[in-house]
Simulated scan of single mutants.
Amino acid sequence: MSSFRRCVARVVVGAAVATTASISTATVAGAEPVAGCAQARQEIAIRSSVPLLDWSENFGIDAQGDLWVSRVLRGEVQRYDREGRLTATVDVAAPGAVRLGPDGLLYVVTGNSPLSGSGGIVRFDPTAPNPVPAPFATGFPQPNGAAFDAEGNLYVTTGNGVHRLFPDGTEDMDWWAAVRVDGPNGVVVAGDSVYVTANFADADGTPVARVLRLSRTDPADATTIADITSFGALPDFVDDLVVRDGALYVTTLAGRLVRVDPVSGAACAVLATQPLTAVVADPADPAALLAGSEEGTVLRIHPAD
Results as ranks from 00 to 15, higher is better:
258 V>I: 12
106 L>V: 12
146 A>N: 09
178 A>N: 04
30 G>W: 05
39 Q>F: 00
252 T>A: 05
77 V>P: 13
271 L>P: 02
16 A>W: 04
122 V>Q: 14
135 P>I: 04
224 T>D: 14
230 S>W: 12
38 A>H: 07
212 L>E: 09
283 P>S: 03
229 T>G: 03
104 G>F: 08
164 R>L: 05
71 R>D: 02
152 G>Y: 07
45 A>I: 02
40 A>M: 05
70 S>T: 02
197 T>N: 02
278 A>M: 04
26 A>S: 14
12 V>C: 04
259 R>P: 05
221 D>H: 04
88 A>F: 02
56 S>L: 05
151 E>N: 10
151 E>K: 09
128 A>Q: 12
14 G>S: 11
31 A>M: 06
11 V>D: 07
262 P>L: 13
305 D>F: 00
46 I>Q: 08
285 D>S: 13
37 C>N: 09
75 G>Y: 04
128 A>K: 14
289 L>N: 13
100 L>I: 14
129 P>D: 12
109 V>F: 13
105 L>Y: 14
182 D>M: 10
135 P>E: 09
63 A>T: 14
299 L>F: 15
111 G>R: 06
266 A>Y: 09
31 A>F: 08
113 S>A: 13
50 V>D: 04
214 L>N: 06
23 I>T: 13
196 V>N: 00
148 F>L: 11
290 L>H: 05
204 D>V: 02
160 N>W: 04
174 D>I: 00
114 P>H: 13
159 G>A: 14
300 R>G: 04
253 L>Y: 00
169 G>C: 14
220 A>M: 06
6 R>V: 01
249 Y>S: 09
137 A>Q: 07
6 R>T: 07
8 V>Q: 13
18 A>I: 07
3 S>P: 00
181 V>M: 10
248 L>A: 09
154 L>V: 05
260 V>S: 04
277 T>D: 02
215 S>L: 08
167 P>N: 14
126 P>I: 07
284 A>R: 09
52 L>R: 05
106 L>I: 11
177 A>T: 11
37 C>K: 11
112 N>T: 01
285 D>T: 07
53 L>A: 14
293 S>H: 07
64 Q>A: 15
277 T>Y: 02
9 A>T: 11
68 W>V: 09
144 N>Q: 12
53 L>E: 05
122 V>Y: 14
163 H>T: 10
242 V>E: 15
248 L>H: 03
151 E>Y: 06
272 A>R: 13
111 G>K: 04
278 A>W: 01
250 V>K: 01
